[in-house]
Amino acid sequence: MPEAILEVRDLVKHFPVQVGVLFKRTIGHVKAVDGVSFDLARGETLGVVGESGCGKSTLAQVLMRLEKATSGTVRFEGRDIFGLAGQELRRLRRDIQIVLQDPYTSLNPRMTVGDLVGEPFEIHPDVAPKGERRRKVQELLDVVGLNPEHINRYPHQFSGGQRQRIGIARALALRPKVIICDEPVSALDVSVQAQVMNLLDTLQAEFDLSYVFIAHDLSVVRHLSDRVAVMYLGKVVEIGTDEQIYEHPTHPYTQALLSAVPVPDPELRGRREVIRLTGDVPSPVNPPSGCRFRTRCWKARDVCAQEEPALVDRLGHPSACHFAEEHPHVAVG
């Protein structure tokens, strides 16, 4: 495996649940991220997939150091990001950037596009001298496929896809090495999704970027990612290369997610089994004992409630299931 730019080890983020007006008592913890480990290689795209509420976005916040982790480490180029402060932290901000999910709230409505994309340069004045900033902003707009003459427009004058391009231009401004994409296309129309995905793909090659690409939909991630991690209730349940996850999934949850991906070919449609999960995602405040997926799993046995399955190599790649096996007719080939 090539050199890892980002190493995440046993990352845990719990949010305290508090009651009381003046004197707050902690009555529990939302276990949003509960022991996540992975490596991101230079130039690689790691897809992170899971249902709403499984902790994907919290993971993004912690990787950005917008939230402090409860425990665990994140190493960027070998240095623990939680140990950084002051100048070093500012330096880190230049290397890791984020593209947020909702293009309608991620841009300040009272700033012009020029101000929005130019703000990184104001915060990090050493990146571009004052006189050059406007040219740099226009270059960036050009790179993401927007008209550089539109610097005086406001976000509301753009469509969702164009706004997301503005968000991408802002993230690119500091020439980061890693970009965390927190569901960057899930708020967009399908036709626009493809354009933005292609743009991200082109930019990766052009600027030598590594992506952590978060999505709730396996089909979106496949287009871009080299490896995929599937998350459920704060834990990674299966991780592997594109081929391992899409063609040889071994965890029941991955199989269920895959079986829900629409198949464009009508010939194949009838031949595939759709696994319908019953019930809701359990509360992350009080997750099930043992395997967290057991309450919705058709394979669940007694052992699943007693013993938590470790994320170890089973049938060729890491999968956290006691009964890991391939399931016929779910893989999208």
């Binding site: 984020i98 300040n108 968000g167 802002r170």
Partner: peptide, 9 residues
């Protein structure tokens, strides 16, 4: 947008 600004430092 506040999150994004914090992310920029």
């Amino acid at each position: 947008y506040v999150k994004a600004a914090r992310g920029l430092g």
